[in-house]
């Protein structure tokens, strides 16, 4: 019960901290002071208090985008075990629900983008959906490997760790899957090198251009949902990268927090040392992610 409470509190409160950490890391690399660590919280709170501007073209779909985007991220967050603790919702086959919840969020975000009738947002929607098509098989290959290793069909079981890591077979498979899922994580959360969240040219954006016309509270929901998605996918990746980290009650939570912040620093480092890929190269890298986790599965065929 206590763990469920902590899980929900962390899920609701922690997400905006991660982009704050990423921003600080990038500022450090650039030799700047950078915005305060809690800046994303201030941004979201400010947006929630602001008025809204709606295009005359839009319909109910325009508001359904932010709402469904956040609702799916929340529900997905309840399916993922945080730091080795059991997830609040867990049943055999929940990894499929997890993957499809994000697809549902994407459906409505992209539909909301098209609702404005702007060519920029159409471009963003087309790119987002195209890249997601290639990221999803990579995710599912990874899930197959984890399910085979852990002999379990729920995210909690798959990410519980505790399976033997043999140097010859399982460990390399897991390394491949971790590499693949890291690429998926960067792509799904529109980070460099797939997408640049801070770019200022509509033509080169992916995620940001889809939400160009949202403002006020609706935009606040989108920002909050995006950070939550980063945290949830990050939590999955952490358990893949360190499957046998202790799941002891308090230590588990501390390790989880440290791991998430560490992941944010790593993303910040990646963003500082790399440039964004050219748009035409992005599919190649996502296919590479698919192949990495497919090779992981091939290793397990005995």
């Amino acid at each position: 019960m206590r763990d469920v409470g902590i899980h929900i509190l962390l899920l609701l409160l922690l997400p905006p901290l991660l982009p704050g950490v990423i921003g600080k890391t990038k500022a450090f690399f650039a030799g700047r002071v950078g915005p305060p660590l809690l800046q994303p919280y201030y941004d979201i709170l400010k947006l929630m208090r602001k008025g809204s501007v709606f295009s005359v073209t839009t319909t109910w779909v325009f508001c359904a985008g932010p709402v469904v985007g956040l609702a799916t991220a929340l529900l997905a967050g309840l399916l993922v075990p945080f730091g080795g603790h059991r997830a609040p919702l867990s049943f055999p086959g929940d990894m499929i629900l997890f993957a499809y919840l994000f697809a549902l969020g994407r459906f409505f975000t992209a539909a909301a983008a098209l609702d404005t009738g702007s060519a920029f947002e159409g471009m963003g929607a087309a790119r987002e959906l195209t890249f997601a098509c290639l990221a999803e098989p990579a995710l599912l290959f990874g899930m197959l490997v984890l399910a085979k290793l852990s002999d379990s069909l729920s995210l909690t079981g798959m990410l519980a760790g505790g399976y033997p890591l043999e140097l010859g077979v399982t460990a390399p498979a897991l390394v491949l899957v971790a590499a693949s899922l890291f690429l998926v994580l960067l792509a799904e959360n529109s980070r460099i090198p797939f997408d640049d969240p801070n770019t200022h040219l509509e033509l080169t954006m992916i995620h940001e251009v889809m939400v160009l016309d949202h403002s006020g509270p609706a935009f606040g929901l989108i920002e909050y949902g995006a950070t939550m998605k980063l945290m949830v996918t990050g939590a999955v990746w952490l358990r893949v990268a360190m499957p046998n980290a202790a799941a002891d009650s308090w230590l588990g939570w501390i390790l989880f927090l440290a791991g998430l912040l560490g992941l944010a620093v790593v993303i910040g480092v990646v963003e500082s040392v790399m440039a964004r890929f050219r748009m035409v190269v992005v599919p190649t890298f996502l296919v590479a992610a698919c192949l990495l986790s497919a090779f992981g599965m091939v290793l397990l065929v005995r």
């Binding site: 929630m48 501007v53 295009s55 005359v56 508001c63 609702a71 006020g216």
Partner: peptide, 21 residues
């Protein structure tokens, strides 16, 4: 969330405009 958003939007005031072009 939809109901909450609706309330916030109503409180904050709404301006109708053209799509960003």
């Amino acid at each position: 969330l939809g109901a909450g958003l609706y309330r916030r939007i109503r409180c904050g005031g709404v301006v109708r405009s053209v799509t960003w072009d």
